[in-house]
Design a protein around this nucleic acid. Structure first.
Lengths: 132, 132
DNA sequence: CTACGAGTTGAAGCGCACTTCAAGTCAAGG
DNA sequence: CCTTGACTTGAAGTGCGCTTCAACTCGTAG
């Protein structure tokens, strides 16, 4: 049985994140020993799934979907297939951006307005990436 | 001279976004005709730069950097080079995720805990992607 | 006994990129 | 004159994924 600090350390998360996950129903409330959380080892596997899914672009809400109800494997396959498609589209977009950025390395415009002439007109960006 | 609604429509943005961009100094305040904004055509080019840069993962703060001061082309090159590196790393990560997701299509675990056994233990996710 | 560190709670705060709201202004059409 | 619809403003709200805070409790060490 592990304390919250121990779990956090081994999962590479903050204790506050674990409490948050519990609040939003991503982790089931563990046994309490005089008020403190005591986690079984198995929580680490679950956290690996969460971390993995987060890294794949699943939102916490999606991950909750994944966990709620059976069969787990079927849900996993469904969500994975969907995310896979999104990911492929994202990679395509990023490749396009990559080329545009490379071409902009040769940019010698004197102003954004001048530069904008060469850029493709388009709708709002379709991918938002946060680089940590 | 264009009204805010017209600019928004042609740039694929909401008027509120244009006002927001103005507030944070991304667009210079345009001429007002009895209080209403009147934009020159050139704003569309600038908005293309903004939209393009956003799509490449630049934050609005970074884009503001890009616009502030000359020479524009030099700043563009600097920022583009930096973002290019980040983008390449992101693409690498996404490729890895792609493989993991594909392997998880064959998942037949009965529970997240079981599934977690097969996943690599790792630290917090390094890329956060929002698919809109 | 006291101090300490790790834990507990609910509430509030943060950063980003906007959106929404309330309350008011304006020009054109009927 | 009145309505309509697009616009104006500042302030507040939203969603996500947490973090931070205040105030408190607990077991252990000295």
């Amino acid at each position: 049985m592990l304390t919250i600090g121990e779990v956090a350390r081994r999962a590479g998360l903050e204790s506050s994140a674990l409490r948050y996950y519990e609040r939003i129903g991503l982790l089931t409330a563990p046994e309490r020993v005089s008020g403190r959380r005591r986690y079984p080892e198995s929580v680490l596997a679950r956290l690996r799934v969460i971390t993995f899914a987060r890294g794949c672009g699943f939102s916490l809400a999606e991950i909750r979907q994944l966990f709620s109800g059976r069969p787990y494997s079927k849900r996993m396959r469904t969500l994975a297939a969907r995310k896979l498609t999104e990911l492929e589209q994202a990679i395509d977009r990023f490749r396009a951006m990559h080329e545009l950025l490379e071409s902009s390395l040769g940019c010698d415009c004197l102003s954004p307005e001048q530069c904008g002439q060469r850029l493709p007109a388009g709708p709002a960006p379709t991918a938002l990436i946060r680089f940590p």
